[in-house]
Simulated scan of single mutants.
Amino acid sequence: MDRRKSLKAIALGSVATGLAAHGCKPGEEKPEVTDVKAHEPVKWRTDYENKILTEIKEGEDFFNEHQRETMVVLCDLILPPSEQYKGASDADVVSFIDFIARDTESEKMQTDLKGGLMWLDHKCNTENELVFKDATIEQQKAILDEIAYYDPNTPDSERPFEVNFFSMVRNLTMSGFYTTKLGIEELGYKGNMPNVWDGVPQDVLDQHGVAYDPEWIAKCVDQSKRNIAAEWDEEGNLLT
């Protein structure tokens, strides 16, 4: 499995969990997936949520111009574009991270994000006499190779600051990309979809040597009655 597939596999679990509530009931039209950005007020949020989002949106950006440009470079190194796939900047992932940084109540996260960008520039300037965003891809990757891999058995508190910084940005990049229309389309995630249950497939029944009672099937797998709620008598017998 290549790196992109590995990252997608991790992201799919998070996306599936987060989007499970957006399925639809049988007979309802499936909502179209739209590329709504995290900071855009929308009708399905509460008035309070939209108020907070509007305040964040209209507030001052978290990253300055240099920091934003550096983040764009860093995020595209984490999830680069190719002929087959879109990259982080195609989904404007840095705006998502900027929003998260402004929305969070964690001052440590805010400090670590800006401190990590300072570390990248200092490291790159020391080794190449350039700020990180102006270095060559080879120079940038050489720096990231030193901090991109860590021993999972080592507690976060014992890892170097720069290693935790890169891990945080990698996680934010994946979350930001794979919760946009571009990312969801790449995953092939369809969400909860209405279907018709006809019982356990016949080949599975045959494999286990079991069969349905015809009377039970008539009561429980009659699709003409699929929207009728089941009723039971006091002894637990199915009535409808």
Rank of each mutant, 00 (worst) to 15 (best):
L53K: 03
L53H: 01
T54W: 01
T54K: 01
E55M: 06
E55H: 01
I56S: 01
I56E: 06
I56Y: 04
E58G: 04
E60Q: 12
E60H: 12
E60F: 06
F62H: 07
F62D: 06
F63K: 00
F63M: 11
N64A: 13
E65D: 13
Q67S: 09
R68L: 10
R68S: 08
V73A: 14
V73L: 05
L74R: 00
L74W: 06
L74N: 03
L74T: 04
L74Q: 06
P81C: 03
E83L: 07
E83P: 00
E83T: 04
Q84L: 12
Q84T: 15
Y85A: 10
Y85D: 11
K86G: 14
K86H: 13
K86N: 10
G87T: 09
A88M: 10
A88C: 09
S89N: 15
S89P: 06
S89W: 10
S89I: 11
D90A: 12
D90W: 03
D92Y: 11
D92C: 08
D92P: 02
D92N: 15
V93Q: 04
V93I: 15
V93A: 10
V93Y: 10
V94K: 00
V94Q: 01
V94I: 07
S95Q: 12
I97H: 00
D98V: 06
D98I: 09
D98A: 12
F99E: 02
F99G: 00
I100P: 00
I100N: 03
A101R: 01
A101V: 02
R102L: 05
R102K: 15
R102N: 07
R102C: 05
R102W: 06
D103S: 13
D103L: 08
D103N: 10
T104N: 01
S106D: 12
E107G: 11
E107H: 08
E107N: 09
E107V: 07
E107K: 11
K108I: 11
M109L: 12
M109H: 04
M109W: 03
Q110N: 02
T111A: 13
T111P: 00
T111R: 03
T111V: 09
T111N: 09
D112C: 05
D112G: 02
L113M: 13
G115E: 10
L117R: 03
M118G: 02
M118L: 08
W119S: 08
W119E: 10
D121M: 06
D121A: 05
H122C: 05
H122I: 13
H122M: 10
H122D: 10
H122Q: 13
E127R: 15
E127L: 15
N128T: 05
N128D: 03
E129Y: 09
L130Y: 01
V131M: 11
F132V: 09
K133C: 07
K133F: 03
D134V: 07
D134C: 07
A135P: 11
T136M: 13
T136K: 14
I137N: 10
E138Y: 05
E138W: 05
